[in-house]
Amino acid sequence: MDGIRRRWFRYLTGTMAVVVLAAAALILYELWAGSLPTWREWGLSFIWRTEWDPVRGEFGALPFIVGTMLTSGMALLIALPVSLGIAILLTEYAPRVLRDPLIFIVELLAAVPSVVFGLWGIFVLAPVVQQHVMPFVAGSPLGLLPIFGEPGPGYTLFTASLILAIMIIPIIASLSREVLMTVPREQKEGALALGATRWEAMRHVVLSYAKPGLFSAAVLGLGRALGETMATTMTIGNRLGLTFDYFESGNSMTAIIANELREAASEIHVSSLMAIGLVLFLLSFVLNTLGRLIVMRVHTGAA
């Protein structure tokens, strides 16, 4: 009796695992099948075409891919040092009394719904960015970089990047904290015993030991930024057309799908949105796999 029950349970859990896999495979298949007309029409050149004109049936993914890359990249650039700081503070410096509440607060940030971030972006961040941040950056030496043009309205690639940065900080920070905790105590104490200062021990021993893990934390944070839809759509400006200028309204892969799928009437329009979905799916898939693989290597290495 017990044996049957046990086997039954094993089948049950096995089925559930397969269901998840099958769902992922089905999504991939549906995206592929749904986007076939687009691939037939333009082939791979769809990826670097820059027009997007539903009236004339001209579609290309490049502006959206670039928009996603620029915002996610900038978000990571901003979020990484902040998250790392939080993680180091939590593992090395914070007294026990402060540590648990701090961890709690950081993780709470991850639980805020993205639409709330979006609303905050519209009503608070966008005006501040427009009136203060963009003029300041444009006036500083950074403003000489070609990626910062003349400050435009509040809804820009830059605003979206800031929102994304705030959204991925909790993820990167908590993953980094876990990675830092896997650093063997002996290593650090060894360094301190050899006369290294706390800073030197941190820099040369702890961080270099944890480097692959931190890298994968960053990759997973990036994956989250790539797929974020609501907050991005609400703050990015949703302008069609290719731009590399952070101070200009732009668009992202998620935003264009969220914006246009509902009312897309022609088949090629729907199929092009599906094609963008497919590209996004593959991109996130590759990035996440990469991140997980590195985490796995760290864990087996540490064991």
Binding site: G237, G241, N259
Partner: peptide, 16 residues
């Protein structure tokens, strides 16, 4: 530009 439920706007910012 032409007419449709979404068009390629030459200028402006988009609101949802």
């Amino acid at each position: 530009v032409g007419y449709s439920t979404s068009v390629a706007w030459p200028v402006g910012i988009g609101g949802n």
